[in-house]
């Protein structure tokens, strides 16, 4: 623990080639799946929206976990950036969801 400052490689020690290749392949598949459904119109409108959002969120997790190594803690300290990201996502969802919800009353007040 005491000599970690002398070893720059420890900054990001958890990535491996396998992890990046896996992440890349999963991302490709998760990009192609909604694209094919949209181009072939093989689902209802709601079905398409659900498929697009589910694959997008899954791919977001691939980036966070396999590429950005969000689970990797720095030298045993509290997991600040993981907690921050959870808070950030909660606020982001509140901004987007709340705005759409509030503005859905637009027709009623005009």
């Amino acid at each position: 623990m005491s000599n970690h400052g002398h070893d720059p490689a420890r900054v990001h020690a958890h990535g491996s080639t396998g992890q990046y290749v896996t992440g890349y392949l999963i991302s490709l598949v998760l990009t192609i799946i909604p694209l094919l459904f949209v181009l072939t119109h093989s689902l209802s409108r709601t079905g398409l929206v659900v498929t697009i959002m589910v694959t997008a969120v899954l791919q977001f997790f691939v980036q966070l976990f396999l590429f950005m190594h969000i689970r990797q803690k720095q030298d045993g300290g509290p997991h600040w950036h993981g907690m921050g990201m959870v808070l950030g996502v909660v606020i982001a969802l509140t901004i987007v969801g709340g705005s759409i919800w509030v503005m859905s009353f637009n027709e009623q007040v005009q």
């Binding site: 720095q74 600040w80 950030g88 606020i91 982001a92 901004i95």
Partner: peptide
């Protein structure tokens, strides 16, 4: 010797706030 961990945390905080910027324009 190594500004790594605290710089990394600061950068994560920037990314999270950038996330909120994008959330606003997505809304």
């Amino acid at each position: 010797h190594n500004p790594g961990p605290i710089n990394q945390l600061g950068f994560w905080l920037f990314l999270i706030s950038d996330c909120l910027l994008f959330a606003s324009i997505f809304a």
